[in-house]
Write a protein that binds this DNA or RNA. Structure first.
Lengths: 221, 221
DNA sequence: TTTTGTGTTAAACAGTTGTTTCATACAGCT
DNA sequence: AGCTGTATGAAACAACTGTTTAACACAAAA
């Protein structure tokens, strides 16, 4: 038998996208078996039960994802502004760009929004390196070293702008008019805006604000 | 009969938290009826079907939530900077509450992440007025009228920074060190940072950027 | 009193779910 | 050939789902 086209592999290949799209409970074993063109009993025969198939699917997604989309290596004289744009563009490409979200990302996102025990390892192995990389770019963009908290906050501000287009994608689609929907999710437009917005913010965070001259009582609402 | 303790109200009171905790599909009518101490047929009697009960629950959640943190009415001479801070602070208060997330927020977040039939109405009645209000503040902060797209993008940048602390709350908690966790989710700190970050960005979006002097090829990565 | 309308109840219904059963096919072996 | 272990197939199973039914309770109206 073709070692790559075993029944077990066909099930795994079919299960990942379906779990990603529908979630664990909503995905049915019949749906998966239909998609994999295997008998209904095969899942229980090879994986014991549905939950073990789900666990194996998450593991597979993480493995496949780990060896994709390596960050580019920049030359020493690359401007931090360019690095930030590259980072934002990469993040948006991985996470947002609408039509084609890899099922691996979908499945991992599911685990993140409903964190389980597996999520801790996911953060350490996958998200922290990315976030640290962003913070180092932020460091390059600022003249003086930032306080730890502010540094982190800036990082989340940038990440938040990107992720929002995925988390709130449904609402955003309903919010913008039909003819603006396409350019609203356009990768180039998004990358450009979020980069410019964040650069402008970082460059001027230390500049005197109109709020600074106001009494404290007004500021704290 | 006690007008406040009708069967219909008992169902609504029980359904909200259960839908919020388990989602639409996972929540069962039997579970809700048990919690409300009503007969199994009552949901269909009063609401027609399960989905209508869900829609009514979302509407109730939205009403209760908006009532809890109403928008302030500003005097004519209020600085737009102050208005933005108030807006951000209110949004964070409505959405980012660490320890115990109210079931109303849970339910609304579910609708954002996984829009159902209830979402369209939610957007029109709830999100759009809030978003328009934010955009009008942005207008006050800019001297020249903004292009439609950029105006919308700025709005989503601000909203995104706020919502990220809810959507990625689990990941953020794992990401920051134990001793920084509290101040990371501190309402005052968050309001301050996001307001300052956004103000700095808006004020300088039109200023010349380091990226503008770069060749297009470099910019588009 | 009889009738009518409104709630409530227990039971049944029809459909879907994950899982199990048992017969069968088939390759590799003695 | 006969035997054995692996793999597949169709059907059945048991539990659970949302929904419907029909009987019943009881107050207000006729």
């Amino acid at each position: 038998m073709n070692r790559e086209e075993t029944t077990k592999n066909r099930i795994l290949a079919a299960a990942g996208p379906i779990f990603a799209r529908r979630g664990f409970q909503q995905a049915t074993v019949r749906e998966i078996c239909d998609a994999a063109n295997v008998n209904l009993a095969s899942i229980n025969y090879y994986f014991g039960d549905k939950q073990q198939l789900y666990i194996d699917s998450v593991i597979l997604a993480r493995e496949q994802r780990a060896q994709q989309f390596p960050f580019p290596s920049w030359s020493d004289d690359t401007l931090p502004e360019v690095k930030l744009r590259t980072f934002v563009g990469m993040l948006l490409k991985r996470v947002v760009v609408m039509q084609t979200i890899p099922w691996q990302v979908q499945l991992l996102m599911r685990e993140i929004l409903n964190p389980t025990e597996a999520c801790r390892q996911l953060v350490e192995d996958y998200f922290r390196p990315i976030f640290d990389r962003l913070l180092r770019i932020v460091d390059e963009l600022t003249v003086e070293p930032l306080p730890q908290l502010r540094r982190t906050q800036i990082g989340f501000s940038i990440i938040g702008q990107c992720l929002n287009y995925r988390f709130s994608a449904g609402v955003i689609s309903l919010m913008v008019q039909e003819d603006q929907r396409e350019e609203c999710f356009d990768w180039d437009e998004l990358t450009n805006h979020i980069t410019e917005f964040s650069l402008a913010a970082i460059r001027n965070l230390d500049a005197p604000s109109a709020l600074d001259s106001l009494p404290k009582a007004t500021k704290t609402y």
